[in-house]
């Protein structure tokens, strides 16, 4: 049997909102260590990797070595409309069960339950290497969201140029070109902090459509972390409630290759 209780149900709601436009069906891989999810978008350009450690849950039980629960994202986000912002969520599945039961509760006054039919999803797993990035940028989620939204008005691709002292986001479109520079700002109040760590400068191009999709996970944390290496996928990481110990939602995006 699998049973997990999360007092802050909105965390799960935000996770699903963050990935629902990228992936149609996903597998929840449950083990005694927590919940993992890995899925590619239909074009195989990006990869979503979720890790929820048991620390994020008030209660967590998985009797088997592992369980795979196949979820349709559209149905899950529909179910989570039932979940109020202050509700707790309990997920429960029998070992050989065909459903995952969600219970949303606010105190004892209101209890909603929905049994979701599980799917059999064929999914490929990719090995994500532990990567040390040449450039790391930590910036407020609101800033990331705003930059991607504003830049998408001018072009399809955005160049991220990370150098000592700051990071430049630029776009070159039909109507002209523009750039936004964010300075390395470690000594301002937490919510405005921008931390740019550079071993060697990196400049890469990415599709704004995907960068904007990742921004839908912004409500999950205050800060987002970008990892860049030459000629490798960009890593866009949201730590759950800004605590890596609870887990993280990571997106990887393949770069555009210049001709």
């Amino acid at each position: 049997m699998f049973e997990a209780v999360l007092s802050n149900g909105s965390t799960l709601k935000k996770i699903f909102e963050g990935i629902k436009d990228l992936c149609t069906d996903v597998n929840f891989d449950v083990s005694s260590e927590g919940i993992k999810l890995q899925a590619m978008d239909s074009s195989h350009v990006s990869l979503v990797s979720l890790e929820l450690h048991t620390d994020v849950f008030e209660q967590f039980r998985c009797d088997r070595d592992s369980m795979t629960l196949g979820l349709n994202m559209k149905s899950v986000t529909q179910i989570f409309k039932i979940c109020g912002n202050d509700d707790s969520v309990t997920m429960r599945a029998e070992d050989e069960g065909e459903t995952l039961e969600f219970t949303f509760e606010k105190g004892e006054d209101r209890v909603s339950t929905f049994e979701l039919k599980l799917m059999d999803i064929d999914s490929e797993h990719l090995g994500i290497p532990d990567t040390e990035y040449q450039c790391n940028v930590k910036l407020p989620c609101s800033e990331y969201q705003r930059i991607c939204r504003d830049m998408a008005g001018f072009g399809d691709n955005m160049t991220i140029d990370c150098q000592k002292g700051g990071v430049t986001f630029s776009v070159d479109g039909e109507v002209g070109k523009g750039k936004i520079f964010l300075k390395h700002q470690p000594n301002v109040e937490e919510k405005h902090k921008v931390i740019v760590t550079v071993k060697e400068g990196v400049e890469l191009d990415f599709a704004l459509r995907y960068l904007n999709n990742f921004a839908k996970a912004a409500p999950l944390s205050d800060h987002v972390q970008l990892g860049l290496n030459s000629d490798t996928p960009l890593s866009v990481r949201f730590d759950i409630e800004d605590k890596a110990t609870l887990g993280s939602l990571k997106f990887f995006l393949a770069p555009k290759i210049k001709e």
């Binding site: 590619m40 350009v45 490929e124 797993h125 090995g127 996928p233």
Partner: peptide, 14 residues
């Protein structure tokens, strides 16, 4: 011009 690469070019299938 730039071409979109696939994520499977970078991460190995398990």
């Amino acid at each position: 011009a730039a071409n979109q690469s696939s994520i499977t070019n970078f991460f190995q299938r398990k």
